[in-house]
Each structure stands twice: as C-alpha cells, then as structure tokens.
Amino acid sequence: MSENAHYGLLKGKKGIVFGPLDESSIGWQIAVHAHREGASIAISNVAAAMRFGNTDELSALCGNAPVIVCDASKNEDVDSCFGELKEKLGKIDFIVHSIGMSQNIRKQLPYEELNYEWFMRTLDVSGLSLHRLVSYALKNDVLNDGASVLALSYIASQRNYWTYSDMGDAKSLLESIVRSYGPRLARRGIRINTISQSPTYTKAGSGIPGFEKMFEYSDLMSPLGNASAVECAEYAMTILSDLSRKVTMQNLFHDGGYSSMGATIPMIKLAHEVLNDKELAERVGLEDFKPAK
C-alpha cells in the first residue's frame, strides 16, 4: 500500500490506539493508517511518553486526534480514559493495544535473576493491561457491536528467545487473555486478536540485548524477510475492518513466513561454516550453549 493508495476500509469508524510513542513504533503507524483509511481516532499513552515522544505530531497527522493521558496499569486511569473517550468520540469500533515494557530487560537482568517486583510490573503493563482495557471499555459501554480489539504480540510467547526474558511470559499472558475473552465478546459480534510481528526496530525493540542479531537472524529465516512497522500497520487495517468480522481469538503471524520455517539454505550454510571453524565457534561462545550429555 503506497502512501497514496487507500481503500476506505475504516470509513465512518472510530477507535483508540494505546501506546504510540514515535514514528518507529507500530502503534504510531497503525494510528496514521487508520486515519488514512477513514477512521476518527483518539491516541493514548502514559504521561512520561507524552513528554518524551511525539504525541502532538501524531495527533496532527491524524486530523487533530484527541490525546488522552492514561496509565493502562491503573484501573482509575483506564476508567477515566474511556469516559473521556466516549464524550469526545462517542462509541467506538476498535481498540489497539500497543503497550509493552520490561524493567528487567532494560536493566539487562538475566532471566534466572529477575527482580520480581519488576516482573509483576512487566506482566501488568504488557499483558494484564489488555484485560483491563477490554473490561473498562465494556463497563463504560463504549464498544459498538461488531467492534475489533487488536493487540501486538511476538513469537516469544510460544518459543524461547533468550534475551526476550520476562516479556515472553507477558506475551503468553496477553494471548491467553485474548482466548479467554473471545467467546465472551463474541456474543456481541466483537472479535479480539493478536498480531505476532517480526522483530521491528522500535524504541522498545531496540532496547532488547542483542536485538540487531535477532533481527538479522529472523530476516535470514523468513522467506519474505522481516515485516516492517508500516507493513504491520497495513495488515492491521484488515483486522480492524469488517473484512475480518469472523476472525477472533487468533494469534496472526505477520513475519514473512518465519513462524512456519524450520531452516533456510542461508542459515544452514552459515551454521555449517561455524561448526567447521573452531576459532569462529569459540569466538561466538558456541560451546557455552551445547546441550549436556
């Protein structure tokens, strides 16, 4: 989809995007694309992100979209947010959850030595907040029948990615909440899904130790290569639109085919070279990760 090619997929719809920070963030791109597809949107983030991000710029790009300060880990904030949203936009047709944070990753604590207070904070902000958003949206009667709820996940919810640490647990919780809420929302035709995106150079993603290596590996392992934030936003438009009205409780992989691959020829060749180059194998610490016998 080029910058000038839009399809009116969200014409007449209203929604809110939680968590956009700057142009690199997927939430930012989803907000911009939703506006281009005809939606009226609101933007929400915590106060600190409002200060350090470019929220005012995003608001202007989205037709002077209302900006609502909200900490999605606090009941009173979320309740107030949806009350304000209903006053400003009326009832809405979609919610986008683009929220994630781990102090353990930020401080580079190994998984075996997690700070448990920070761990609980990771689970609350990155996972449980989705339950809170949906629950308070229902309590405030802000969701239209047939609405779409979408959250952003990562394949580390299902497979181990060493440096993704407690965020992998948070994404598992996020996807479980989607499955648990799915049948309950379906009675009103509301669907809820996650998109499992490729590694993406966002502020949050880039803070993961060794992220550039994860990115390069994923790109080599994906038949179509890594998906960008813009491409994720384009895909998200179909999930927010009526074109996906029978899609719910799904974790939708948007990763260039990575999630279905065993190995690619380039990766097999690289592994072969490393295994047969003792100096290189030692330099990358291969012996440290060999299974015990």
Rank of each mutant, 00 (worst) to 15 (best):
H131E: 14
C70R: 08
M1C: 06
F52V: 08
S196I: 13
G53Y: 02
R106Q: 07
M267S: 06
L89D: 05
E287A: 13
L224S: 13
I192E: 03
N54R: 15
R245Q: 11
K139Q: 05
L58Y: 06
N75E: 14
F52D: 13
A5S: 15
L280I: 14
S135W: 02
N75L: 06
G100K: 07
A263M: 12
R184N: 11
Y136G: 00
S40Y: 06
W118H: 11
R283T: 07
N144Q: 10
D145S: 15
R121Y: 14
D71I: 14
D255H: 01
I190E: 09
A5H: 15
A156N: 03
G168A: 13
M120D: 14
V17L: 11
S25Q: 02
E113V: 02
V134Q: 03
D166S: 02
F253G: 01
A137T: 00
W162N: 10
E287P: 00
G127I: 07
V67Y: 07
D93A: 09
S80Q: 06
W118P: 00
W118L: 13
G285T: 07
S126N: 04
L240G: 04
G207P: 04
L89S: 06
R36L: 15
A156R: 03
I16V: 09
P110N: 08
V78H: 02
V149F: 08
G210C: 04
E57G: 10
G205W: 09
K14S: 02
S80C: 06
Y116W: 15
A65C: 07
S40G: 04
V96Y: 00
H131S: 05
A281C: 06
A60S: 04
E282M: 10
I26S: 09
A147V: 10
A292T: 05
V284C: 12
L138I: 14
V274F: 14
T200S: 14
Q250K: 12
P209K: 15
A31P: 04
P199K: 14
V142C: 01
Y217I: 15
S135N: 08
P183M: 09
Y7C: 05
D124K: 15
V125M: 07
D22K: 12
Y235F: 15
S180K: 01
Y201T: 03
S222T: 12
P66G: 10
A137M: 01
L252E: 00
H33K: 13
P266V: 10
K139N: 02
L10R: 00
L128W: 13
L85I: 03
F94K: 07
R283V: 07
A39C: 03
K171W: 06
R187W: 00
A263E: 10
N140Q: 12
V67F: 02
P209Y: 01
P20A: 12
D141T: 00
